[in-house]
Design a protein around this nucleic acid. Structure first.
Length: 285
DNA sequence: AGTAGGACCTGGTGGC
DNA sequence: TGCCACCAGGTCCTAC
């Protein structure tokens, strides 16, 4: 599922190939994907506009268009973008197609139909819940150990749930939280406020490490994810715990365990990430 | 305010 | 072989 490294990889595979292109036509096959606009409204609005830039924010992709308009794209779980020659057969579940002046098509494909392609103005963008409240980029300057400590302080939520909260940190999803917590040696059910300064320090380093590793390996290709040129990433080959329940932990050899934390399937090593005792769950502050 | 849990959505998988 | 229940999870929404 696309998290920050996967979306960043898609961004990099599109950068330099979209800027300056004019959208000469648009097809909306599945109306819900472009809501609240109608398919006709969407097509009319984007037709004739130029793509000035493509950017990423958290797990969102943004295409800057004319007149302070944007296409806000979220891949959710199974969405992908493909920039391809029109003669290449359209895969099933192709929901939106943008015809570009270069002759190529930018296709939005999403079997599970969770993803969205939304046209909006700068003003509207600032009102999109889930976007304007996004926390800092974990690989940016706004994300510091102090910031992480401030987030964790007084919060009773499991640390896994905190890391998944996009309003606190933008871009982490289920895979990279499990990987970061394992690297930091922290059990996912530990209460955020119970983490010591040392643990927060390790976690801060681990979050950035696994994200940078993920980007370096062009993301994790498991199930649907590929970049806009159809290339797969290979970070899934480096997963330490995610998707490896019952297999040996690469650090200590103990069998990786799976449970449900914060409503998500969660993978952890019982030896490297000791389960919280009631004492260790009390506030550290 | 912070937290928890269900809804959305459909392909894949495992059990019978 | 075919059927069915269940699982996957990012985000929004509602309830407590």
């Amino acid at each position: 599922m696309p998290e920050l490294p996967e979306v960043e990889t898609v961004l990099r595979s599109l950068t330099g190939r979209l800027e300056g292109q004019i959208i000469i036509g648009a097809e909306v096959i599945h109306p819900k994907v472009v809501e609240p606009l109608s398919p006709e409204g969407f097509a009319t609005a984007v037709e004739g506009t130029r793509i000035h830039a493509i950017r990423r924010r958290g797990k969102y992709l943004l295409l800057d268009l004319d007149d302070d308009h944007f296409l806000l794209i979220h891949l959710r779980m199974t969405g992908r973008l493909a920039l391809v020659e029109p003669h290449i057969a359209r895969p099933n579940h192709t929901h939106v197609v943008l015809h570009l002046s270069s002759g190529l098509e930018l296709r939005f494909v999403d079997p599970r139909r969770f993803g969205r392609v939304t046209l909006m103005t700068v003003g509207e963008l600032q009102q999109v819940s889930g976007f304007h409240q996004l926390g800092p980029e974990p690989l940016g300057e706004g994300f510091t150990q102090d910031y992480l400590a401030t987030c964790a302080r007084r919060r009773k939520v499991a640390i896994k749930g905190l890391l998944l909260n996009q309003n606190l940190i933008a871009g982490l999803g289920n895979i990279y939280t499990d990987e970061a917590l394992h690297l930091a040696g922290i059990h996912p059910e530990r209460t955020a406020s119970s983490l010591t300064e040392d643990e927060l320090s390790h976690l801060f380093v681990a979050i950035r490490h696994v994200l940078q590793e993920g980007i370096a390996h062009r993301g994790s290709s498991f199930r649907d994810y590929v970049d806009a040129q159809g290339a797969k990433g290979n970070y899934q080959e480096l997963w330490r715990v995610y998707g490896r329940s019952g297999q040996p932990c690469p650090t200590c050899g103990s069998l990786v365990t799976k449970s449900r934390v914060a409503g998500r399937g969660t993978h952890w090593c019982p030896r490297c990430q000791p389960a919280p005792s009631s004492a260790s769950q009390s506030d550290h502050t």
